[in-house]
């Protein structure tokens, strides 16, 4: 029934600023960008998993988290911090599960890095 593919969509207040963040700071590839309609999509680190953005007049920060898997959380944080990403709080440790680091995009949508400690 399903085929490979997950997409996450966010309302954003300024598409250019959002793309600068996701492509410039997080390093994701922009695969679609239509300024006229205020829409864009980026590839993530995962095959067939894309994030879409649509400009909106009113934006409420999403409370659900989009979590990106990394190999080593401290190294990944260091690299992103060099790109200008600020993390919120300390690395959170869920024993036997994962290490998590929280940050937000320019509209305050919740994002996270996760280093999985056990394979599921």
């Amino acid at each position: 029934m399903y085929r490979s593919g997950v997409s996450i969509w966010y309302n954003v207040s300024n598409l250019e600023r959002t793309l600068e963040f996701y492509s410039g700071k997080l390093g994701f590839e922009v695969i679609f960008h239509d300024p006229e309609s205020g829409m864009a999509m980026v590839n993530t680190n995962t095959k067939d998993c894309v994030i879409g953005f649509s400009e909106a007049e009113t934006v409420e920060p999403a409370t659900s988290s989009t979590v990106f898997e990394v190999i080593n959380i401290e190294e990944a944080m260091k690299q992103l911090e060099e790109n200008g990403v600020s993390f919120i709080g300390e690395v959170e440790h869920i024993p036997g599960m994962a290490k998590l680091a929280t940050f937000v995009d320019p509209d305050g949508h919740n994002l996270m890095l996760a280093e999985t400690l056990v394979e599921l």
């Binding site: 598409l15 300024p35 006229e36 309609s37 205020g38 400009e55 007049e57």
Partner: peptide
């Protein structure tokens, strides 16, 4: 419609 496409159009 959405705001941005309207504004651009």
């Amino acid at each position: 419609g959405r705001f941005t496409p309207l504004q651009n159009k």
